[in-house]
Nucleic acid binder design. Structure first.
Length: 846
RNA sequence: GGGCGCAUAGCUCAGUUGGCUAGAGCGCUUCCCUUACAAGGAAGAUGUCGGGGGUUCGAGUCCCUCUGCGCCCACCA
């Protein structure tokens, strides 16, 4: 017997049911399921560096809807959560939160207390602390942030199995990350090399191709005169970076450029510094750019690197890792001139060099300002410089066409949602110009599990790395000692030294399926979940997270890591402007949950088609709340009618017709969810639902109330059936309201109820159209007469079109269904469409 | 420069093998306290489906082209 509250309400249902779900364990992954019976999700681990925003709510709702659908179809859903807490975002937040900065030269302080916990004053100068102390603070803050994230995700109703929680800095992740790297190394998929590297001079890590971006910046062409050594005059070049003149190693022009044919193979002397450099030809030089001939410096930009490599030029680097000019001039550079810029920042050096060139008369004319794209680290504030350093790389096809083709082919094995997102992947893979740089000169990350022997001169031997056993992972080479050595041999001649770097955060998060699935730690579990079914993520990180995951899986397993990639769109402001704190228009997810209810917010998220950028809309949330409320009310209404007899059947054509429509909805919704299109499932279900409430229920209401005209049980049973099915169709999208209504007459959760299947009663859905046409005309008559919809109709004359059977039935049905109609006549007519004449009962009042 | 996407009512968007008179919600107008729901309900108005051309009995839907907007990628002095 149904237990329906007098006044159904949405208030408080989130807390009530999420608590019950935990107790009943309905989200628990059943690891006894076979691989075919499992639906495994490679949940994106959110970066734990502050607060959750609407973007999280948006995309995680989409995944949860899919997860809940799959669970109802009988799959054991592997739905983990992870925190991406290693890496620079956390370091930055720790610096700002505690007012400290990491200085590896500092000694460890036992029981260190940071000067602040949250919001140090603006004039506070960060204090340097040791690396171990810094890492302790990282751990502390990360734990704090993760608590807040978990609370919000629970409130959002994510059906994740929280026992599967991981963090990308935890021991398990470090072990997986180090193991995978060592295997890459053993198969020669990873290597270290001394090479020009993009370098952020502020954060001082090496930067990978995927992490840099172009920004338009003002610059200026400076025209400089290089002196031909054959005495035949000067060659003029344009440069935006005169400060690198001392690093110049050659001039280059296009091989077909007629103007420079005579000078190819000759040499010139650089202005100020007097270094003799060759004039060379290379097809990358553009005749229409500047004077058509460029100076090659080590290194001004990535083109310089290409020229340097392909033309086998010497290195004459002058920029240090801190972004300043080095103190000693490279060989052959005029020492006095160089002393003028030694130690200066790039900007200061440029100013000084321009002054000197002006004095010497080697600069022709004034500098000409331009806007040009400059490479930046995506989180950085100053342009990237290129320095030579030893770094670790993982092969990703950037310098190997076979591997590249193989990875493009892997992209075709994946099913993309929406399909056009694959182009972004291919575009990226085909445009790679180097291997994946995975080493970072940072602190809060997974250390490279590597030591190096130190030779008699105290220099590390990078060609003979010392590796740990997999069984000992994870290790920290800065504290652990390799086999065969003792700790007092650290950094001593003849001893060993640990690799100081940490792995790129993507090098760990690209292994999220392995971390969540406990690769090698629990082979039985791993075999049941890998390759996974679904990777949900934002389209902005296809080039990083998605691609890196493909690379790792390709190397380690020779397969794709998942069958489907589901790409979510962005959240835009209602006015299409960026939401920002400074404008004060940022809304917090928790506030919205409280105002509209979680289901309403989820409704807004689920209304957006997969992959489409979507405006933030509180109006949509209001609609969602209305929908959730309606589900409760319609359920209450149907239960209030009383139960049909046990032997009742849906035998009225009108009721069968409604269920036939519902069958189509079940089909469409199932199809939508199965293809990761939660929005289509919602749209179909919702539009049926409103039709059901507004038209069908109004139509059969009077029959369901009273046994007088027959067909009462058919109506009750049809109503009950439809509501029951609708609960289940909506359950993945509006988990709280559906659970609330479902539990009025069920002991167990709607979320583990079987997904609805079609009824196949063979009803004729078309039958409803003429009946509803009559209903609409009666309503219109009442509205035009400005009377209540409850007003009685004295006579209703229905002129059916061409006496077709459905039309006849419509008349008969209308006669019985509409309880407030006293007399109905059905007239066969020859009009094109059905029409009615409605005569209302005059009001008794006064 | 290359690639991808978008353009339908005042606003946000559906419209999936081409097929009834192009839909929904919000907003707007009018009306109704009705016993599931007034944080509700009924009815109504509003469209050169971005422009042009083509295929077809038939095009919002397919093809070509143009325009505007957005995103991704790219090796430049």
């Amino acid at each position: 017997m149904a237990n329906v509250p007098d006044k159904p309400t949405l208030d408080g249902i989130e807390e009530r049911w999420s608590g019950v779900w935990d107790t009943e364990g309905i989200h628990t992954f059943d690891r006894s399921a076979t691989r075919e019976g499992v639906f495994a999700i490679d949940t994106p681990p959110p970066t734990v560096s502050g607060s959750l925003h609407m973007g999280h709510v948006f995309s995680y709702t989409h995944t949860d809807a899919i997860a809940r659908f799959q669970r109802m179809t009988g799959k054991s859903v592997f739905y983990p959560m992870g925190w991406d807490d290693n890496g620079l975002p956390t370091e930055r937040r720790v610096q700002n939160y505690f007012g400290v900065r990491c200085d590896p030269a500092q000694p460890y302080v036992e029981g260190f207390e940071p000067p602040f916990r949250g919001d140090p004053p603006k004039d506070h100068r960060s204090i340097p602390i040791s690396r171990p102390n810094f890492l302790e603070l990282c751990d502390e803050l990360v734990e704090l942030d993760e608590t807040v994230f978990e609370e919000l995700f629970r409130r959002l109703g994510l059906s994740v199995d929280w026992s599967l929680l991981y963090a990308t800095i935890d021991e398990r992740s470090r072990r997986v990350s180090q193991r995978a790297f060592l295997r890459n190394l053993s198969r020669n998929e990873a290597y270290s090399a001394e090479a020009p590297t993009l370098w952020d001079v502020d954060f001082q890590p090496a930067v990978a191709q995927a992490e840099m971006e172009d920004r338009e910046r003002p610059g200026a062409y400076h025209k400089l005169a290089f002196h031909r050594t054959d005495g035949a005059g000067d060659i003029e070049i344009d440069t935006t970076r005169p400060e690198l003149l001392a690093a110049c190693v050659a001039l280059v022009a296009h091989p077909d450029d007629e103007r420079y044919q005579p000078v190819f193979g000759t040499t010139v002397r650089t202005p100020l510094y007097g270094v003799e450099v060759p004039v060379l030809a290379h097809p990358l030089a553009q005749p229409d750019k500047g004077t058509g001939i460029a100076m090659i410096c080590t290194f001004g930009d990535l083109t310089d690197v290409i020229w340097w490599r392909e033309l086998q030029l010497p290195t004459r680097a002058i920029i240090a890792r801190n972004g300043r000019i080095i103190s000693e001039p490279p060989d052959g550079v005029d020492a006095a001139a160089f002393a003028e810029i030694a130690g200066l920042t790039v900007k200061q050096a440029q100013k000084r060099v321009v002054e000197m060139l002006a004095e010497s008369g080697e600069m022709i004319g004034e500098a000409r300002p331009i806007q040009h794209p400059v490479k930046f680290y995506e989180r950085g504030e100053r342009p990237l410089e290129i320095v030579t350093s030893r770094q670790w790389y993982i092969r990703n096809g950037g310098r190997d066409t076979d591997l590249r083709a193989a990875l493009v082919a892997r992209g075709h094995e994946l099913t993309w949602h929406p399909t056009h997102m694959r182009h972004r992947y291919e575009n990226w893979v085909e445009g790679l110009n180097g291997d994946w740089l995975v080493s970072r000169q940072r602190f809060f990350g997974v250390p490279f599990p590597i030591w190096y022997p130190v030779d008699a001169d105290g220099e590390p031997d990078h060609d003979r790395p010392i590796l740990p056993n997999e069984a000992d992972l994870p290790i920290d080479p800065s504290t652990d000692v390799p086999a065969g050595y003792t700790s007092d041999q650290r950094d001593q001649p003849g001893g060993f030294t640990g690799d100081p770097d940490v792995l790129d955060t993507w090098a760990t998060s690209s292994l999220s399926p392995h971390i969540a699935g406990r690769w090698e730690d629990d082979p039985d579990l791993f075999s049941r979940v890998f390759p996974m079914d679904m990777r949900p993520q934002g389209h902005d990180i296809i080039r990083t997270w998605l691609f890196a995951s493909m690379v790792r899986s390709h190397h380690e397993h020779g397969c794709v890591p998942w069958g489907n990639a589901s790409l979510s769109g962005w959240i835009l402001d209602p006015d299409r402007k960026k939401m920002s704190k400074s404008k004060g228009n940022v809304v917090t997810p928790m506030g919205l949950f409280e105002t509209y209810g979680t289901d309403a917010v989820r409704y807004w998220a689920a209304s957006a088609r997969p992959g489409v950028d979507t405006a933030f809309s509180e109006d949509q949330m209001k609609v969602g709340r209305k929908l959730a409320n309606k589900i409760l009310n319609i359920t209450r209404f149907v239960h209030g009618l009383g139960e049909p007899a046990a032997e009742a059947s849906v035998n009225e054509p009108i009721d069968q017709a409604m269920l036939a429509r519902l069958d189509q909805v079940i089909h469409d919704a199932t199809d939508g969810f199965a293809n990761f299109d939660y929005a289509r499932a919602l749209e179909r279900t919702e539009s049926f639902f409103w039709w059901f409430c507004d038209d069908y229920v109004e139509l059969v209401k009077s029959r369901a109330y009273s046994a007088a005209s027959g067909g009462q049980d058919s109506a009750r049973l049809a109503l009950g059936t439809a509501v029951n099915v609708l609960h289940r169709l909506f359950a993945p999208l509006l988990p709280f309201a559906t659970e609330e209504a479902w539990r009025w007459d069920h002991e167990t959760s709607v979320h583990i109820a079987p997904w609805p299947s079609q009824q196949s009663l063979g009803g004729n859905a078309d039958l409803l159209d003429p009946v509803l046409d009559v209903l609409a005309q009666v309503r219109r008559a009442k509205t035009e007469a400005k009377v209540s919809q409850r007003a009685e109709v004295a006579t209703l004359e229905i002129r059916v079109s061409s006496a077709t059977a459905p039309a006849e039935e419509a008349g008969l049905a209308a006669r019985r269904e509409a309880g407030s109609i006293r007399e109905v006549t059905v007239v066969p007519g020859d009009a094109e469409s059905l029409s009615c004449t409605v005569e209302l009962v005059p009001s008794d009042s006064d």
